[in-house]
Design a protein around this nucleic acid. Structure first.
Lengths: 67, 67
DNA sequence: ACTCAATTGGGTAATTAGGGTG
DNA sequence: CATGTCCTAATTACCCAATTGA
């Protein structure tokens, strides 16, 4: 059985996001607590992050050498 | 909400719910066992979840980034 | 009656949350 | 002010074999 891809956003765990930014998972948690990044909590209290938002944030923080 | 098309409540499998929260299907089972989410049992013992309840739950646990 | 994917159950590692500190 | 590390408690992930669903 399959799920509609449009209806399902891809989510990431704190560890995955932390690895992406090269920071400690705790730091990602702080970002979420500070409202700098949207988060989805599991009923158990763990956080999940939207992959699209993480990528967007990563893009926004990316400073390129001037062309 | 405007109209209820049918009294038919769409049911979701543990795997579908798990994909929505980015967790293991077994974790969804624990939520049901802990009463954190309502569940319907098939005569064979398998669990099914109300699509509307899952969506409401997911929505309530979602927080957007501000600024 | 058969196949095949998914779910169930129990048990054990790995990850995460939260507070306090450097 | 932001990040990293230490701690404990809680939640979640992966292992197995057997049953259920379509």
């Amino acid at each position: 059985m399959t799920i509609a891809p449009e209806a399902t956003e891809r989510l990431m765990t704190p560890g995955e996001v932390a690895a992406m930014f090269r920071v400690d998972p705790k730091t990602v948690t702080r970002w979420a607590a500070a409202g700098r990044i949207g988060s989805i909590r599991t009923p158990g209290g763990h956080r999940r992050f939207r992959e699209s938002e993480v990528r967007t944030l990563l893009d926004g923080l990316t400073s390129e050498a001037h062309a």
